[in-house]
Simulated assay, not measured.
Amino acid sequence: MTSGRAVRVAQHSFLAALIGLVTVCGTASAQMAPEEASGGRYTFSWPYEAEDALKPRGGTTKGPPVTRVTEMTEAFQRLQAEGLSTFERDRRAILAMAGGYRASFDFLEVVGYPADYIPKAPYQSWGTEYVYVIADEGDFISLQHLLVMSIIDDEGEVRGPFINKHWRQDWHFEAAEAHTYRGANTWERTQRSKKARAGQWLQTVWQVDDSPRYAAWGEWQHEDEYSSWQGEETWRPLPRREYSVRDDYDALVGINRQTILPTGWVHEQRNEKVVVPSPDRMTRRLAMEYGVARYDRIQGYDFSEGDAYLEATAAFWGQVRDYWDRLLADHAVLHLKAQSDQASLFLPLFRRASEIAEGADYSSEANAAFVRETINGYLADAPERGGGY
């Protein structure tokens, strides 16, 4: 990796964590900037509310133009092939999410439950993002999202690309158990009977530092025009786009649907915002929002610096994932001191990864010790372990 590239990775990984460009579950705090539009807009909103009060929030950055793919992708053609088993068609639907995209993210509250509820401004953002297949073991597939973003500054110059590790989605066929969010920074092991999980894929979503976020079982459905997966209702922590500006609710309770299309995919969410005083008690619902993330496949965009970052840091992030896996295996209930991104707990991991991408020569043993010490600092009660990590 060149020194210039390494500096950009290191600087942006640190600065983005501070100003909000590193985000959770597909949101990058920046104004959406499609080639066809001059700014964000909504045609489905609250028509009787003051326009200024409901102007979409997000950021102000814009990116250079990109070229969308307009022909059916090879991945979608493979998904539509005749004679596939249901299991293989499911796999190809998951693998079709890999590749380079221009992503847009839209969230709009559509219901306020209290009589005096005041609608909050919708949210829009964008990102250029590559989805990498980092594991494919047949009945287990892991997809790592990486932001590779260039922005246009006030003088009209293009800056970047800036590299940031983003969210991860794991898919496990007929998984027997998962840790699901219970509120109050607590994840609890949930088990599923063999009959109940038959034919289902467990999707587990992890935060930027590979800490847990949410998990749900669901089945893929395949049509001539698309393939889609919808999970059951799940709890999840607040995303960055919300906790940075909201303190009136504690968790999301939502349903996800991911739809694979000929030139990309769409992630839909229906989220209720709830007030939660304890892990096992939900007192009231505050509002409900719709969310749509569109991943439009693009061509001609240079993702090579993302490739280089992922290659340079693969072993380190593998150790991070392994340690989280061990903690989850050892704890039926895992309680963190705070939400990892909200409390900036992930910053040491991002700094270490940036140093490695820059060429720092840490031994595997030193990295393992660093990972153990850092992640144990997340825990309300850090485990005492001997040997290994």
Score class of each variant (00 low, 15 high):
R246V: 06
D209W: 02
N256H: 14
G4N: 15
I163W: 00
D302L: 02
M149W: 04
T263M: 13
L345D: 00
Q77E: 15
W171T: 01
V133I: 15
A93I: 10
E188S: 12
S211F: 02
G83I: 03
D250L: 06
Q144I: 05
A178M: 05
R91C: 09
P348N: 06
D381R: 11
Y362S: 07
A357L: 06
S278Y: 03
Y249N: 08
W235R: 06
A37Y: 12
G59C: 06
G156H: 10
V371F: 10
A93L: 11
D209Y: 04
H12S: 15
L202G: 11
A369C: 04
V274K: 00
A287E: 09
R182F: 11
G300K: 07
A382H: 04
Y214E: 04
Y181F: 15
Y123A: 00
F87P: 00
S354A: 15
S13E: 12
E219G: 11
I134H: 10
P262H: 14
L108Y: 08
E242A: 08
A382G: 03
T43K: 12
I255M: 13
A329N: 12
E373Q: 13
A17I: 05
M149F: 07
G58Q: 03
T73S: 14
G20M: 07
V276Y: 03
N164C: 12
E174M: 09
R236C: 11
R89C: 06
E305Y: 04
A312I: 03
Y309P: 02
Y378C: 02
V110Y: 07
T70W: 03
E358V: 03
D106R: 13
Y362I: 06
Y290P: 05
V266S: 03
R89T: 10
E242C: 01
G40H: 02
S363T: 15
Q169A: 08
